[in-house]
Computed example of a mutant assay.
Amino acid sequence: MTDSPAGPIASRRGLLFGTAAASAGMFLAGCTSNESNDDEGGEQAPAAASDEPGRHVTIGFAGPQADHGWLNAINENARSRADGYEDVTLEITEGSNDTATQIGQIETLINSAVDVLVILPADGRALTQIGLDAMRAGIPVINLDRIFDSPQAYRCWIGGDNYGMGLNAGHFIGERLRDVENARVVELAGTDSLELTRQRTQGFDDALATYPNIEKVARQAAEFTVESGQEVMSGLLQAQPEFEALWNHDDDQGAGALRAIDQAGRDEFIMVGGAGSKAAMDAIQADNSVLKATVLYPPTMAASAIDLARALGQAKGVGGLAEFEIPSSVTLYSAVVTKDNVEQYLPTGFN
Rank of each mutant, 00 (worst) to 15 (best):
L90K: 03
M281H: 01
M281F: 10
P121I: 07
R79Y: 13
I9L: 13
R125I: 12
A10N: 14
S234D: 09
D252Y: 03
A153D: 03
A260D: 04
G124R: 09
Q263A: 15
M301Y: 13
A62G: 02
N351G: 14
A100Q: 14
G319E: 04
C31S: 08
A283T: 14
P46M: 07
E107C: 05
V186K: 05
E76I: 09
H171A: 04
A255C: 09
M165N: 00
T348Y: 13
T338Y: 07
D51G: 03
I103P: 01
V330D: 00
A134C: 01
G124Q: 12
E76K: 06
L236N: 01
D98Y: 06
L308M: 06
A78P: 00
A303C: 05
D287C: 08
I326V: 15
F148T: 05
K216E: 12
D67T: 12
R198V: 10
A189C: 08
F27H: 08
D206V: 10
A239E: 15
A335D: 13
T225D: 06
G42K: 09
Y154V: 02
I158R: 03
Q152R: 13
I142F: 04
S33G: 00
A209M: 13
A22N: 15
N111T: 14
I214N: 02
G25N: 09
Y85S: 05
G174I: 11
P298R: 11
A239K: 11
D87H: 00
F224A: 03
T58Q: 07
L177D: 05
V180D: 08
D252I: 12
T19P: 06
T294P: 00
R259P: 03
G159W: 14
E244A: 06
A24V: 07
G14V: 10
Q202L: 15
A303D: 00
P299W: 08
S329P: 01
G18P: 15
T191G: 06
L332K: 02
E107F: 04
N97M: 11
A82V: 01
L90M: 08
R155F: 07
A309S: 05
G265V: 01
A22E: 15
T225A: 04
A29Y: 14
W247T: 02
L291C: 07
A48P: 05
A209P: 10
S193I: 15
K316F: 06
T32G: 11
G84M: 03
L188T: 01
T58W: 07
D205K: 11
S33M: 03
E181M: 07
F224Y: 15
I147Y: 13
H56P: 12
E242T: 12
G190L: 07
I147M: 12
G138K: 10
Q105C: 10
T2E: 08
D252P: 01
G18A: 14
D123V: 11
G160N: 11
G95A: 04
A335L: 06
G349C: 07
A100P: 04
N248T: 13
I173G: 00
Q285N: 12
P151K: 05
G84P: 02
S277E: 09
